[in-house]
């Protein structure tokens, strides 16, 4: 029982809720860049929400299923076909032996998440199934998938058809259809060096639209706009770098730290994207536009509480 990757796509990797408690060893959390989409895909299949999924970035794979099973795709919208039949995100999809799932053109967003019934025949590494693509460990053979890989799945044999029609089939309500317009407002709170930036630098940073450069991956996202000039080089002492930190290196062009990013950083941080907006980072692609707005930490936590509540109610 396996997935056979006829084409692997640009960067298709196993990810889950990530690994925690190991950043003091230099090990970043990894996991799905858009954790909300991962959770929704797992919810559709009635699996624990942080279960391992395929993270599919920008150019999707073509997968042949060597067994019947059930899958669900959430997140970025690709033109999806099961053999020649058009299928869609946010639904439960039953596949039969020999069926091919084809991810064609990317329509919106950057990363799709494919959840599946059954379990992986892989041991978690450092308490997670996530692939750390920078340090090359975890997930499937410590790397992203390649053409002609087989990913073995065990258990939950759907071929005997335990009367699937009788199972309550989950569907996601319309408000889950996330639009990815390619133009985002990211809310921020203060970070360690925020107070060291000049008023002029902050005014420019929060007033201009940044363009996402081609230099983006699971480690970090390089942005471009008018340079934030430093009157004199800002020398800081390296400290713990969290996901969503917006670092300003001497070039004056921001870098947003992501899930596979370094755990300690030496560039000053002007702000930090709020936790509730972090999943959006997973849907950014080259050419997208971002504006930043500063809010208070109290407000950020209110938003986090409300967002959590919304997902808890939805994914009960």
């Amino acid at each position: 029982m396996s997935f056979y990757f006829i084409k692997a796509g640009l960067q298709t990797s196993l990810q889950d809720g990530g690994r925690y408690g190991q950043r003091h060893l230099g090990i970043s959390q990894s996991g799905a860049m858009d954790a909300n989409s991962m959770r929704m895909a797992n919810w559709l299949l009635n699996k624990p929400l942080d279960s391992p999924v395929l993270e599919i970035a920008i150019v999707g794979p073509t997968i042949r299923f060597d067994h019947a099973l059930t899958i669900a795709v959430c997140g970025a919208q690709f033109e999806l076909h099961l053999n020649s039949k058009r299928v869609y995100n946010n639904q439960v999809i039953h596949v039969e032996l020999g069926d091919c799932l084809i991810f064609s053109s990317l329509q919106q967003g950057a990363r799709a998440y494919l959840a599946f019934t059954g379990e992986l025949d892989i041991s978690p590494m450092l308490a997670s199934y996530s692939t750390h693509l920078t340090a090359c460990f975890g997930g499937f053979k410590n790397r992203a998938f390649k053409n002609r890989d087989y990913l073995k799945i065990i258990g939950n044999d759907d071929s005997n058809k335990i009367d699937q029609c009788a199972l309550p089939q989950r569907t996601l309500p319309d408000e889950c259809f996330m639009p990815y317009p390619g133009n985002y407002l990211m809310r921020c709170t203060e970070s360690v060096e925020s107070s060291k930036f000049t008023k002029r630098q902050k005014t420019l940073f929060f007033s201009q639209a940044y363009k996402v450069s081609a230099d983006l991956n699971r480690m970090g996202i390089q942005l471009h706009a008018k340079t934030l000039e430093f009157d004199q080089p800002m020398v800081i002492s390296s400290s713990g770098l969290t996901q969503g930190s917006i670092q300003i290196p001497p070039s004056g062009q921001p870098i947003i730290s992501c899930v596979d990013g370094q755990t300690i950083g030496g560039y000053p941080r002007i702000a930090n994207i709020i936790s509730a907006d972090l999943p959006r980072l997973g849907q950014l692609k080259s050419g997208d536009k971002i504006n930043f707005i500063m809010i208070s930490r109290d407000y950020a936590l209110q938003i986090l509480a409300a967002t959590n509540h919304w997902y808890d109610e939805l994914l009960k």
């Binding site: 950043r23 002492s237 400290s239 713990g240 936790s275 936590l301």
Partner: peptide, 21 residues
Amino acid sequence: VEDIIPSYQSMTICFTVQAAL
């Protein structure tokens, strides 16, 4: 506390979502 990252002149304490709230 989810993670604690010591550094040369600092330490960073990362909270779980529940603890942050």
